[in-house]
Computed example of a mutant assay.
Amino acid sequence: MRTTKDRIRQAFSFEAIGLLLSTPMAAFAFGFDLGQTSVLAVIGATIATAWNYIYNLAFDHSLKRITGTTRKALKIRFLHAIGFEFGLMLVFLPIIAWWMEIGLLEALIVDIAFVVFYLIYAFVFTWCYDTLFPDNDQPAGIPE
């Protein structure tokens, strides 16, 4: 199992890199003001950081209880990424609509774009993170 310090490092590095990648792409793709999009991204990152910690802790405890290890095979990595993004999407949708002053349907399209980006990003980031910083249940240098 990962330590609290490691979980915090993982959550903050995930969000920092994600912000640097997603904010300018979203502003450009949707024609939004970069400043307004940046604030939205920081709001989303703050929510996502808290969710990241809570979700990963609960996921790892559940995985350890069910399988006896926190090692994640490819199928589990997909389930992990989808579950994380779906939960975050439910919370973030009304905030997007309110902050960007757009309707729920347009906000849903923006939210889906963020979800698609972050699904791919979460999968790649977590795999890389687990390779660079393996937990006690995962042998170093052997991502699954």
Rank of each mutant, 00 (worst) to 15 (best):
T23Y: 07
W127S: 06
I47H: 07
A140I: 11
V39R: 03
I8M: 04
A29V: 12
L79K: 13
P134K: 08
W99M: 02
R71Y: 09
T49R: 10
Y55A: 12
A48P: 04
W127F: 07
D130A: 06
A122M: 11
R65T: 14
K72M: 09
A16I: 11
F114C: 08
G83E: 08
T4A: 09
S13F: 09
T70Q: 06
V110T: 05
W98A: 06
L105A: 15
I102G: 03
N136W: 15
L21F: 04
F78Y: 12
G87F: 00
L132S: 07
R71L: 14
Y129E: 12
L119A: 01
I66H: 13
A81H: 01
V115Q: 07
I95E: 01
S13D: 10
G68W: 06
T4C: 08
T49A: 12
R77H: 14
A73Q: 15
Y118S: 10
R2P: 00
L21A: 03
G103S: 03
L104S: 11
G68Y: 07
A122N: 06
S38K: 04
A73I: 13
E101P: 07
Y121G: 00
S22P: 01
P94L: 02
Y121P: 00
I120P: 00
E144M: 13
V115D: 05
I66C: 12
V124I: 10
L20G: 03
Q36K: 15
L88R: 07
D111I: 03
Y118I: 10
G87D: 03
S62V: 14
M1N: 07
E106W: 11
A29K: 10
T4G: 07
A140H: 15
C128Q: 15
I142S: 11
V110E: 02
L93Q: 01
R65W: 15
I109T: 10
E106P: 08
L132W: 08
W127K: 05
R2V: 05
E144Y: 14
D135T: 11
M1E: 10
G141Q: 04
S38I: 08
I82K: 04
D33N: 12
I76D: 10
D111L: 14
F117H: 05
A48E: 03
W51N: 07
V116F: 06
V39G: 00
Y118H: 13
D6V: 12
T67W: 15
E15Y: 11
L105I: 09
S38C: 09
S22H: 02
Y55N: 06
R7Y: 03
V110Y: 01
C128F: 13
A122S: 13
E85P: 01
